[in-house]
């Protein structure tokens, strides 16, 4: 059992989990949810429930006639070795507390992360995903704050190590905060330890003070 499994308080919303099940989310959001589900059996079970909805839609949906040689063509495909398959995600040990899907994007553990300083001790690393949303790792030194910001779209923040507090609540390892345009917040890392998060956004953040706003185009935050 994952060591965070019983302490997670903040979970994926139904809307995001349904969209993840349907496969319609931008890659950066899918990565964040796959990472949370890897750490949270409760959301894994909820995801299974949403997949069951998908199964029911397949079962009840309109059937389309397949080609007359469809079965024969499928058997031929199987005999020829089958379609190119993506590898099945295998269970593997956590490296630096990072769930498997995230290790894939980093290429290993935290020592493989190419951090860039963004000021006040905060570091970030943008992960390679499709451009309709951005996934970044954030390093916030113990007690430091990410500048006060609002969101044009949706921001998902998953705590990987340490913890942060904002106007909403306290977020520890495995907790996921879902912020939208209604929330302006200043996440502050817990004083006890440095905080490492995975954050995904589908629109640029809106900073409330001038300096980060001027720096924004260069930092891609």
């Amino acid at each position: 059992m994952t060591d965070t499994a019983n302490t997670i308080k903040h979970h994926v919303t139904d809307a995001l989990l349904m969209a993840y099940s349907a496969g319609t989310l931008p890659e950066a959001f899918s990565l964040t949810i796959a990472a949370h589900v890897s750490m949270c059996d409760d959301c894994r079970a909820r995801l299974g429930a949403f997949d069951t909805v998908g199964g029911a839609l397949i079962e009840q949906g309109a059937a389309e006639d397949v080609a007359s040689d469809s079965l024969a063509a499928t058997m031929a495909l199987i005999r020829a070795g089958g379609p190119k398959e993506r590898p099945t995600p295998k269970p593997r040990p956590r490296v630096d507390g990072l769930p498997g899907p995230l290790q894939d994007y980093i290429g290993g553990g935290l020592d493989k992360v190419r951090w860039r300083h963004v000021g006040m001790g905060v570091k970030q690393a943008i992960l390679p995903t499709s451009r309709d949303a951005t996934a970044r790792l954030l390093f916030i030194p113990a007690g430091a704050a990410v500048p006060d910001h609002g969101h044009g779209g949706t921001e998902l923040t998953l705590v990987l190590q340490g913890a942060f507090v904002d106007e909403v609540d306290h977020f520890g390892p495995g907790d996921l905060e879902v912020a939208n345009e209604d929330l302006d917040h200043t996440p502050i890392a817990d004083i006890g330890a440095d905080c490492i998060c995975l954050a995904a956004t589908d629109a640029p953040l809106r900073f409330r003070s001038m300096i980060p706003r001027l720096a924004q185009p260069f930092l891609r935050i």
Binding site: A34, A35, G100
Partner: peptide, 14 residues
């Protein structure tokens, strides 16, 4: 997703 959206959908650890 592979064929139509040409996107990746990272999956949870098995």
């Amino acid at each position: 997703i592979d064929a139509l959206r040409r996107q990746k959908r990272p999956e949870p650890e098995d």
